[in-house]
Design a protein around this nucleic acid. Structure first.
Lengths: 243, 243
DNA sequence: AAAATAGTGTCTATAAGACATTATGTC
DNA sequence: GACATAATGTCTTATAGACACTATTTT
């Protein structure tokens, strides 16, 4: 098997064109999806990680991932991984993040991974340890444990994307329950952007863009003045310049 | 070969984990890169396309692409494709666009393609028909011929990214020669954004962000008042809110 | 009444957008 | 001097950011 061939050789012999290619003639890279699943909890930005049980990176943490099956789309593979590994099911915002393909990123073989970025509601946050058994836990994105592969870089990239999403889209609603207070909304922004926002200016903008509408309900069982509960007034993911 | 297996089966039998995977046990998808190479020429946004010589989509146009070799990075594959297919060499802005992986996007076999987005200077624009021989030509992104695969979708997505890049980064400089006039700069924006801009407001912004500096030179051999020539005063790709 | 959080408005500075005339070079 | 494009400024409106006090509920 010409597994050590260089691209130049391949190019010369095979005309460098997909159409000249016999899919069984060469070794192919493996393709996986990795999910970067975020939530906001306890005033902290959390990312779901599984603990690895075997070589390589045994005992270290890593993103939940799966191989892409020959007959499923990338997005289906990412959703399947989300469901199988976390037990989380509906109402999850998901989008493709980036494809990481350095030849040596996996010590076993050539693995190209397509990163998918997911935002789950605080409520959905129960990570089920599924049959696949490895421990899955929320970790602070600001204080990560030792990670296998290039997953630290992937998470760093995902946090940048998440910040962008918050400033320029309505993705924040995928991190909140259906009904939420304006303070919860602001807190979600503050945790993710890692800076404080002015309450009055924040509310001015939220209302100017008509991002929320009143439900008519208020908080209950709080030992202070209860806040009004709002719901999202835009589709999740819609592009709006918010901050 | 269990090439028709569904993902659920794979998941159950193999624990759904990359680490359980024997790279030779299953058929892998093929992985390609496709380059979406843009330039601005003749008041038009152009994209480089090759004419296909064989099935599938024989006679139709398609993006230049290559298989990813087992030992090269995705970016190296994209650059190799750029050089081999277009003859274009230095000073090209390139970034990963998106990964397209619908199972049926290629009628031959499962092919996942990583799109790379490239911007070349007007000057570098000589497309060389290389040994790989198929015709390569610039086509208007606003008036595309019939394309094979999902390449029309890919180009549509790339045009959106390009517009975003122009509004929020200094990527425009990769489309211009080293020295350029402010009218050329404005024209590049207008062609890509597909709308007219006010000359005075445009110049105000360019100067406010200190995007350009004077070279001290002026245009030559024009039959009207010659414009000053400027050069970029920021790194290409830097993030700045421009328009 | 004390504690805790909710909720609200003004002022200033900066940015965005609409808009027309003069300047300078070539032929 | 006719032609073609270069170059420039003002005014109005909208947006962003700094900033502090009152209101409401629970205990």
């Amino acid at each position: 098997m010409p597994s050590t061939k260089h691209s130049e050789n391949v190019s010369e012999e095979y005309g460098d064109n997909p159409e000249d290619y016999d899919p069984d003639e060469f070794e192919h890279p493996s393709v996986t999806v990795d999910d970067i699943i975020f939530t906001v909890k306890d005033d902290d930005l959390k990312v779901a990680l599984i603990k690895r049980q075997r070589w390589p990176f045994e005992g270290k943490w890593a993103l939940p991932g799966s191989f892409v099956d020959m007959e499923e789309s990338l997005e289906d593979a990412a959703e399947r991984t989300l469901h199988n590994k976390t037990g989380v099911s509906d109402d999850v915002y998901m989008e493709q993040l980036y494809t990481f393909g350095e030849p040596d990123r996996d010590p076993r073989t050539r693995v190209i991974t397509v990163g998918y970025f997911a935002l789950v509601h605080r409520e959905d946050v129960e990570l089920q340890e599924t049959e696949d058994v490895e421990a899955i836990e929320w970790h602070s994105a600001y204080d990560l444990p030792e990670l296998g592969f290039d997953h630290e870089d992937i998470i760093e990239y995902a946090v940048k994307r998440l910040r962008w999403k918050l400033e320029y889209s309505t993705a924040v609603f995928s991190l909140l329950p259906e009904k939420f207070t304006l303070s919860q909304l602001q807190n979600t922004y503050e945790v993710i952007l890692d800076r404080e926002l002015d309450k009055r200016n924040f509310r001015k903008k939220i209302h100017k863009h008509e991002l929320v509408e009143e439900t008519g309900e208020r908080e209950e069982n709080v030992s202070h003045r209860p806040a009004k509960l709002y719901r999202a007034n835009k589709e999740v993911g819609e592009i709006v310049e918010i901050l």
